[in-house]
Design a protein around this nucleic acid. Structure first.
Lengths: 162, 162
DNA sequence: GGATATTGATTAACAACATGAACAAAACTG
DNA sequence: CAGTTTTGTTCATGTTGTTAATCAATATCC
């Protein structure tokens, strides 16, 4: 195996190109898979995706405001008003006026809302677990570690765009 | 380190729960990152996301039909008609009647369409390469391999849903 | 204290994305 | 040739989201 420096370089570049294409395909497939899952979830729980996402924002927090929901969902406040309108119609949330500040509406989950949120959370945990249990413990560690660094690398590239 | 069998089991379950949560978070972040990228792309190339996706379907193929585009994009045919309407208005595609079969409309990229498709393809290649070059060769191999098995595992879970 | 911002939420108008039903024209099929 | 299937379009509708205008309540400043 005698190679010149140029040959090695050219080979490395071709390899990188191949790996790039591979990465692109894999990421695209995984994202697509996740989107399908979200559509499935939406149908399973008979809730629009936006309302599902909103529902899952209430972790421990008892109350959220329209503004804070908008920030977490990364959408306009007006969109949140519309989403909450739907959720209220379904009896998932209730809006009350803040006694301290008349501008603020305090949004909280109803008992039904909490029930649904728990169901959805359990489902999501379940399917992610089903992915993991297909692997041995050391593989699971590797997967998590790789995704961690990959995510970081993706964020770096994203920062470089703007 | 004396542990009973039950202790080991409980520990393993807790670990799996933790890893599941971690996986869920990482996947969600990566998907979110990709969605942001698609929004960015759409603005950069001044094209709606649907038209961008459609544009990239023409790889080597000279002609596509409405039906084949609908299948590849996984949307209704009526949606494709609308997308093509927009693309035609932008001068990216042209529709001609199939001389062999009067029902079929043959969709092909214009010169401008091919130019744009190449630009977009180059951009996508570029950003995926920027992710990879942050790693050493052996890490790149590991990343690809892990994603490969992860994607397969995700598809398995997806099949198990329906 | 009162004029003037600022903030929080809503409304309305609009655009992108997508589906399903109804339809017309062309092509198959017996 | 009559009936069915295929291909594409149109239309009504729904979800997701934005921006601009508005209103009410709170802050700020002189």
């Amino acid at each position: 195996m005698n190679k010149t420096a140029e040959e090695n370089l050219a080979e490395g570049a071709a390899l990188l190109d191949y790996q790039t294409q591979r990465l692109q395909g894999l990421i695209s497939e995984m994202v697509h898979c996740c989107q399908d899952r979200m559509v499935f979830q939406s149908q399973k729980f008979d809730l629009p995706q936006a309302e599902l996402r909103c529902l899952m924002l209430f972790g421990d927090e008892r109350y959220l405001t329209v503004k804070s929901i908008a920030q977490r969902l990364e959408v306009a406040k007006s969109r949140v008003t519309k989403i909450l309108e739907g959720m209220e119609a379904r009896g998932l949330v209730s809006r009350t006026d803040d006694p301290q500040d008349g501008r603020i509406r305090l949004i909280s989950l109803t008992a039904e809302g909490r029930r649904r949120a728990q169901q959805v959370g359990e489902f999501m945990r379940e399917i992610h677990q089903r992915i993991l249990v297909q692997f041995e413990e050391n593989q699971r560690l590797e997967i998590i570690a790789v995704l961690e660094s990959l995510r970081t690398a993706m964020e770096v590239v994203k920062q470089g765009l703007k």
